[in-house]
Every structure is written in structure tokens, then in C-alpha cells.
């Protein structure tokens, strides 16, 4: 298992665990709700609800 850190879920206020090696801009799934969260900053890690997918997004 990768190292985990504890931080706050911005949607529920719950303590959640996410991988310690996240990067700014990375999208993680909230283990509490499954919602997509964006890593806004690291050190300390802060999360926000990730922006919705837009129609012209893709590969």
C-alpha cells in the first residue's frame, strides 16, 4: 500500500485518507462519497470539489 495522509473532505467535512504522493491539480475520488476532488495545494493538502466535465473535454 502506498503511504496515506489524512485530510478533510471539502464536501462533507469528514476526515479522509488519500495517497501521500498527490500533486497539485490531481483528481482523487473521495473515499467518503466517491465524489471527484481536486488537489488545490499540497503541503498541507487542501481539496476542493473538482470541476464538472465539460462537453468538449476528452482525449
Amino acid at each position: 500500500m502506498a503511504d496515506m495522509i489524512t485530510t478533510e473532505d471539502p464536501l462533507t467535512g469528514e476526515e479522509i485518507e488519500i495517497p501521500a504522493d498527490v500533486e497539485a491539480g490531481e483528481i482523487v475520488d473521495s473515499p467518503a462519497t466517491g465524489a471527484e476532488l481536486e488537489v488545490i495545494s499540497v503541503d498541507p493538502v487542501t481539496l476542493e470539489e473538482a470541476p464538472e466535465l465539460e462537453e468538449d473535454w476528452g482525449e
Binding site: 491539480g25 483528481i27 473538482a50
Partner: peptide, 9 residues
Amino acid sequence: YSRIRRDEK
């Protein structure tokens, strides 16, 4: 980027 997905990582 605007999202770091596993590909970018």
C-alpha cells in the same frame, strides 16, 4: 494541464 489524471502522473 487542467487535471492531473493517471496519464499525466
